[in-house]
C-alpha cells in the first residue's frame, strides 16, 4: 500500500515532528543561543549615541529589506512566527518575574538573565528580533497589502516607535539620585552603580511643606527647591506626580524629612519620541475600540 494513504493520527505527527532531524538541529541551535546569550551581560550605556542611532537605522534597513522580500523571507511576517515570538517573549517575561530582584544568583555560575534580565544578551537579542519582525510586518503591510491599513498602521507603528525608542533611548538615559539640604547647593548626583555625574545646574532645598489628614496620615509633601544656573536662581516646587523639568532633566521628589530631601534626576533625551509612539498607539487603539473586531478571513 502506498505510504501516503496510511492514516496518520495527531500523536504520530507530533512524534514525527519531534524526531525529525531538522527540528532537532533547530532546537539545538535555539537552546545553544539561549544559553550562550544568557551568560552575556550587556552594559546599556555601551549603545549610547551615536551607536544607538546607527543600530536603529540598521534595524530599519533590515526591516525594509525583510518586509519587501516577502517571498524569500515569508517566515518573518507569518502568523506562526508572530505566535512563536509572542510565546517566547511570554516565557522570558515569566522567567524575569520569577527571578525579579532575586539577587541570590548574583556572582554565581547562573546566567545573568536570571536576576538581571533587562541587561542580558538574551533580552537584547529577543528585543531586537521582535523589532525586526514587527518592522517587517509593517513594511509588508504598507508595500503589499495596501488596504484597511490605517488602524493597523497606527497601532503597529506606534508600538514599534515605543519599543525601539524605549530600547535605544535607554542607552542615552541616566537616572541619578542626590540629597539636597538647606545648607548648600549641589550639582552632583549619583547613578545606581555609584557613578558621580555633574549636572548643568545646582540644586538646594528651601523648605518642605507637609499636609496631613485628620487621621494623621500624610496627604501631600512638597519640596521647595532652589535651582541655580550660572547666576540665576529660581525657586520651584516638586512633589510626587509633579516633577520639575529643566534643560532636559526631570527632577523628582523621592523622600522628604527634616531639612533634607532625596531627589531623583532623570535625563532622558528620547522621552518625547516614546511619547509620540504612545500617542500614535493610543489613537490606533481608540479607533480599534470604535471599529470593533473584523475578521480578515
Amino acid at each position: 500500500m502506498n505510504k501516503y494513504f496510511l492514516p496518520i493520527c495527531k500523536g504520530e505527527k507530533v512524534i514525527k515532528f519531534i524526531i525529525n532531524k531538522k527540528s532537532i538541529i533547530t532546537f539545538g541551535i535555539g537552546l545553544f543561543l539561549v544559553i550562550t546569550l544568557s551568560f552575556i551581560s550587556i552594559n546599556p550605556n555601551a549603545f549610547a549615541f551615536p551607536v544607538n542611532v546607527f543600530l536603529l537605522m540598521l534595524l530599519v534597513f533590515f526591516s525594509v529589506v525583510t518586509g519587501q522580500l516577502v517571498e524569500r523571507f515569508s517566515f518573518f511576517y507569518s502568523s506562526k512566527t508572530a505566535g512563536l515570538v509572542s510565546i517566547y517573549i511570554l516565557v522570558l517575561m515569566i522567567v524575569h518575574w520569577l527571578f525579579y530582584h532575586q539577587t541570590i544568583f548574583s556572582d554565581t555560575v547562573f546566567p545573568s538573565s536570571l536576576y538581571n534580565f533587562s541587561t542580558s544578551g538574551l533580552f537584547v537579542f529577543s528585543w531586537m528580533f521582535f523589532l525586526l519582525v514587527l518592522g517587517a510586518v509593517i513594511v509588508h503591510r504598507i508595500t503589499t497589502v495596501k488596504k484597511n491599513n490605517s488602524l493597523f498602521l497606527f497601532i503597529h507603528i506606534g508600538l514599534w516607535v515605543v519599543l525601539s525608542a524605549g530600547f535605544f533611548g535607554k542607552a542615552d538615559e541616566y537616572t541619578m539620585q542626590t540629597i539636597v539640604n538647606n545648607d548648600y547647593m549641589i550639582n552632583q548626583a549619583y547613578t545606581s552603580d555609584n557613578q558621580e555625574m555633574n549636572l548643568p545646574f545646582s540644586l538646594g532645598l528651601h523648605g518642605i511643606q507637609k499636609e496631613y489628614y485628620a487621621s494623621g496620615e500624610i496627604k501631600t509633601i512638597v519640596a521647595d527647591l532652589i535651582v541655580k544656573d550660572k547666576q540665576k536662581e529660581t525657586k520651584v516646587h516638586v512633589s510626587v506626580n509633579s516633577p520639575y523639568r529643566y534643560k532636559g532633566y526631570d527632577v523628582y521628589l523621592m523622600e522628604a524629612g527634616g531639612n533634607t530631601s532625596k531627589i531623583q534626576i532623570v535625563y532622558d533625551p528620547w522621552r518625547y519620541i516614546v511619547l509620540l509612539g504612545i500617542v500614535i498607539m493610543l489613537l490606533g487603539t481608540i479607533g480599534n475600540f470604535f471599529r470593533g473586531f473584523k475578521n480578515q478571513t
Binding site: H96, Y100, F117, S118, V162, G166, T175, V240, N241, S242, P243, D250, Y252, Q264, V266, D268, V274, I278
Partner: peptide, 9 residues
C-alpha cells in the same frame, strides 16, 4: 510623571 520611567519591569 511619578517615577521618571515609562516602564520599570
Amino acid at each position: 510623571d511619578a517615577w521618571g520611567h515609562y516602564w520599570t519591569w
